[in-house]
Design a protein around this nucleic acid. Sequence first.
RNA 1: GCGGAAAUAGCUCAGUUGGUAGAGCAUUAGCUUCCCAAGCUGGGGGUCGCGAGUUCGAGUCUCGUUUUCCGCUCCA
Length: 517
Amino acid sequence: MAQEDLFKKLIAHCKEYGYVFPSSEIYDGLSAVYDYGQYGVELKNNIKKYWWDSMVLLHENIVGIDTAIFMHPTIWKASGHVDAFNDPLIDNRDSKKRYRADVLIEEHLAKIETKIDKEVEKARTRFGETFDEAQFRTTNPRVMESQAKWDQLHNRFSEALNNSDLVDLKKIIEDNEIVCPVSGTRNWTDVRQFNLMFSTEMGSTADGSLKVYLRPETAQGIFVNYMNVQKSGRMKIPFGIAQIGKAFRNEIVARQFIFRMREFEQMEMQFFVRPGTELEWFERWKELRIKWHRALGFGHDNYRFHVHEKLAHYANAAVDIEFRFPFGFKEVEGIHSRTDYDLSQHQKFSGKKIQYFDPEINESYVPFVVETSIGVDRMFLQIISSAYHEEEVVDANGQKDTRVVLKLPAPLAPVKLAVMPLIKKDGLPEIARGIIDELKFDFNCQYDEKDSIGKRYRRQDAIGTPFCVTVDHQTAADNTVTIRFRDTMLQERVEISKLRDIIFDQVNFRNLFNQLK
RNA sequence: GCGGAAAUAGCUCAGUUGGUAGAGCAUUAGCUUCCCAAGCUGGGGGUCGCGAGUUCGAGUCUCGUUUUCCGCUCCA
């Protein structure tokens, strides 16, 4: 099957079987926003549990928190989001290309610098040993002219940028006759600002309200609580703080189903370490995190690392874990060595000391941070797209047929078992209900008596239920049932009293955790 | 944001030169059925994405708009 077709079928399947719905669908939907349905929420919760327990349960030096979506606006100044998530964009009408207006101007500035440098180099070769660069720069008319132009442009540019003066940014581009590198024309649209952070107002607007943002990442909630957690939890470095929560980004283009949404959920763990040890920990977490992914059994080779060549200003190492989606290898998790950038920034902006006294070396320092950050929705998409299978099966009459089955790892499956009477009379429904009453405290169970047994099995396959328990006439005689396994479609006859253990053995997270060692 | 395509029942789709909406599956109530979908009978469900225009009459033609998909663009 073509990969594109698979993706379309998957989206349709998600909607048809209650996993993911477009948001506000009866009002024509809301672009790039989706809701999780009755099975989707179960799968999502299980993914979160797998992550949370692998962090907080399995590591005694990792604790979890849950911070508010609203935070003090200065936090986003300290983190750099107010400035950096705020790009002035401009389109060239001829080439249909979009550029960051500030980048275009910076490139123009760089051109002037290159011109000056060339003059200087020319002079250097001419004068040789006796060349005085500083003197040349302050006396040569051509260089001085260029330098003056540069200074003037740079000042005007900085001012326009600081004041978010979009009109002047465009005028700068026009005045300096900056052309589109592709079309070579100066047919520009107006400069528009796309702030990637959503904002709203807190407090009454009458007597001065506070502009607050919906957080564009959960990490800052951890950083600003570093001292609280370290002190109240008596945490000793190295230690980690984990958090799961919603984040919001006003993406210019948000597409590819739930892969890039404007409202999304992150699972982040910030690991605080002694400066100088961060790259060792970075390597440790890299290996541990890819094991966590591979433990799900979706194919060792469908994962790979993508090393960032160009690092963000705060990082000294960064790598993505990518998965082979139906639309290609895409990032599902990022592991970043963020240095002491964030904590130092908050120390600076808040004026509060954010440091750790390390008794082992008798020193105080701002801890370094290794971050693991994973998108819940991307994990969801990764898992459901890997689990989706269309299989050819042959029935008793030799007729070929397609079985759609979600081969979800049993611990993640929304419904763990379906219990069904083979026929809906002779007291079989009552026995089936009785089994559910026993097991419903431990597992998400479903009862179904409608339609032929084969059809009911297919329905459960479509939502990924790993076990189907069937009550037949023999059950009434000897308290045994058949249990049918989703992936093999094979059945075994077992005692009702053994069901709990058999199922627990499969849906337990321990099977996954054992692979993380 | 630009370009292309699409939107009819829960799903997949049909709907002729413009003449008051159909099928299969699904769903529901029964009957039948002892292990892998499509047996029988009955029921429910659509202002054809939305808004205008042309027309005696628009699912069908025109324009606008919304949403989705594909490509470009963007992406700490």
